[in-house]
């Protein structure tokens, strides 16, 4: 509760800035319309109009909020939650690709980290490639992945998930290599004096020791997965998913729709990362590592 006041203060400040910016950016259009119609507007009329335009340069917060509600909650009340105009449906399309990509990326990341840990050749060779893979702009490589996979008959969910995995494996590799190497020399020596096998060293020492690193990596990976899924939806012709809403919005100048989709994506990302944080708290508590 003590953090409520500061949080609210920041939210209010952002809203105030946002409304101010909306007035500034949308004013010109209002004035142009008025001149064309030969009207003279008072300041209050100008301000009111800047917040009620159909296609504002910058929609006001309440317009975005209304759009969000109309495409989610209101549609649920009408029993059309899964209609193709509903953000819930588009969100689910993006979420399913995100989760599949996240699972593939996390799995691949952990396996690569184990390889790097136990194999000297992989230790020397994998990391530079992993880093190089992340320097390629995802926007450049996403259409190619989709085209190539499509030509071998794979389309829909999987290509998007692969783009997600491409972005999300990297933080997991980096985090887990650090995590697996976090036990110090003394703890490894101790294992040695008990003649522990490499598998025992891994499962009884390295794996539990890497848990705090794992959850930190997973949070970054989850956010990256969502970005990957949205980017993966852009080249498919804007049919379904939050990325499609963004693209369709920009085709038709529907700025309100774009902002609503952006916020839906942000809320989705925050919820997913929050969910991982919750699992992290529960896991570390059960391991006795939370104080």
């Amino acid at each position: 509760m003590r953090s409520l006041l500061p949080v609210l203060t920041v939210v209010m400040a952002i809203l105030a800035l946002w409304y101010g910016a909306a007035v500034m950016l949308n004013r010109q259009w209002t004035l142009d319309q008025a001149t064309r119609a030969g009207q003279d507007l008072t300041l209050a009329q100008i301000v009111a109009d800047t917040m009620a335009q159909d296609r504002p340069k910058l929609p006001a917060p309440h317009q975005v909020g209304a759009e969000l509600w109309n495409t989610t909650g209101a549609m649920v009340l009408e029993g059309r939650a899964l209609s193709k105009r509903s953000l819930i449906w588009h969100g689910w399309v993006t979420l399913s690709a995100t989760l599949l990509g996240f699972a593939i990326g996390t799995g691949a990341g952990i396996l690569l980290a184990i390889g790097i840990l136990h194999n000297r050749a992989m230790d020397m060779s994998v990391m530079p490639w992993a880093i190089a893979s992340q320097t390629i702009p995802i926007l450049a490589i996403a259409p190619m992945i989709i085209v190539v996979l499509n030509s071998v008959g794979v389309s829909g969910l999987v290509p998007k998930a692969i783009i997600s995995a491409y972005l999300s494996f990297f933080p997991v590799v980096v985090g887990m290599v650090a995590g697996f190497r976090s036990p110090d020399r003394m703890q490894l020596d101790l294992m040695n004096t008990w003649s522990a096998s490499p598998a025992q060293v891994f499962w009884k020492l390295r794996w539990p020791a890497s848990m705090p690193y794992l959850f930190t990596s997973l949070k970054v990976a989850m956010a990256a997965s969502l970005v990957g899924a949205i980017v993966g939806e852009l080249p498919t012709g804007a049919v379904r998913g939050l990325g499609a809403r963004l693209l369709a919005g920009s085709y038709y100048g529907q700025t309100v729709q774009i902002w609503a989709a952006l916020f839906a994506a942000a809320i989705l990302a925050a919820s997913l990362v929050g969910l991982i944080g919750l699992v992290q708290r529960i896991t570390l508590k059960r391991m006795g590592m939370a104080r």
């Binding site: 020596d189 101790l190 008990w194 009884k204 006795g288």
Partner: peptide, 23 residues
């Protein structure tokens, strides 16, 4: 060793049990 080197994720009993599990 100089430092106890107990695993923070194991109880005291769990730490003492560790070499027994391994063996």
């Amino acid at each position: 060793f100089q430092a106890a080197g107990l695993y923070p994720w194991r109880t005291i009993a769990g730490n003492i049990r560790l070499p027994l599990e391994i063996m």
